[in-house]
Amino acid sequence: MAKQLNFSSWLPPGHPIVADMMLPWMENVKKATGGRVDITLLAKGLGHPKSYFDIVKNGMADAGYTCNAYSPGRFTLSEGVELPFLGNSAEANSVAYWRTYKKYFEKGDEYKGVQLLGVMTHGPGQIHNSKKVAQSIADLKGMKFRVPGGIAAQVAASLGIVGIQKPASQAYELLSRGVADGVVLPLESIKSFKITKVVPYTTLVPDGLYNVSFYLVMNQDTFNSFSPADQKAVMAVSGEAFAKLAGRAWDAADRVGLADMKANGNSVETASKAFIAEIKEATKHLEEDWVKKANEKGVDGAAALKFFRGQVANYDVIN
C-alpha cells in the first residue's frame, strides 16, 4: 500500500498553476510509478506562500511549490531568470531555466534540505493600467502600481513607477477602487486575478519586462523513502519534463488571458521601438547587479546567462 502523500497549495484548485501544472504533474507521477507514489492536493493550503520551503522541508506537507521571490535573501541565483527581456515563451524559458539550473545554479546549493523536483517561470511580465496605453517612461512616471517583490519591483522602480507594496491577493481591491493605477503582471494573471475590466490598457513588451520564477519541491525524507526505481521514475516526469509541462500551461494561460482582454475590448498595444530602448537603458544595471551577486555565490553569472539565452534561442516552441 502506498502511503498517501500530501500536496499543499496556497492557490485555489482552479488556478492555472494548480489545475494545469500541479495536478497533471501529480497524475504523471502516479502513472510513472505505477501508483506507488500517490500525491493528493489538500483542500486548503497550510500557510502563506513565503512559508512553503519550510512547510515542505519540515514535512508539514510532502510536496509544494512557491515563488523564489517570497523568500528574499534565500535565493539570488533564481533572480537571473527573472531579468528583463529573456523571452516570449514560458515554455522555452522554463526548460532553459532547468538546464541552466543543472549546469550552473545547482552548485549554489540554494535548495538545501529539500528535494528540488522542478523549476519554472511564468510568461513575460507586461504593463497594465487603468489610464492609457503607456508608450514611454514619461507615461508611467508617477503612476501608482501594485508591484511584486524581487526583480519585478526593481524593474518598476527603474521605470519611475510609484510602487504600492501590498499582497497580490489585494490586487483587485487596490485596482477596482483606484488605490493603484496599474500592475505589472503576465497576461494570464489579469484574468486569474479578475482585473481584466479594471486595467483596460496593456502595453506588451516583447521578451517581457520580467518573469517570476517558481520551484516545486518535495520533503527529503519522503523522497528518500521511495525505491531507487521510483525516485528515477519521479524525476523522469519532473525536472525538464515538468518545466516543459508547466511552461506550456503558462503560455496557454497567457493566450487565454489575452483573448479575455480582447473580448472585453481592452487596448493591447506593443511597445514602440523607442519605448523598448528606454526600458533597456533604464534597467540594464539590473543584469550587472545580478551577475555580481551570482559570482559571490560561486556561480559564473555571465556564463550562466549566456547559456540560458542560448537555450531559449535554440528551443522550438511547438504550439
Binding site: 500530501n6 497550510l46 500557510g47 502563506h48 513565503k50 512559508s51 519550510d54 512547510i55 519540515n58 514535512g59 508539514m60 501590498k166 499582497p167 491577493s169 489585494q170
Partner: peptide, 23 residues
Amino acid sequence: AINYHAALSMVSTVASEEGMNYS
C-alpha cells in the same frame, strides 16, 4: 496524522506568520 516533527514546525510557522501578517 503526519508526524510530530512536522507538527512542531507547524506551530512556529503559524505563530510567526500570523504574528506579522499585514492583512
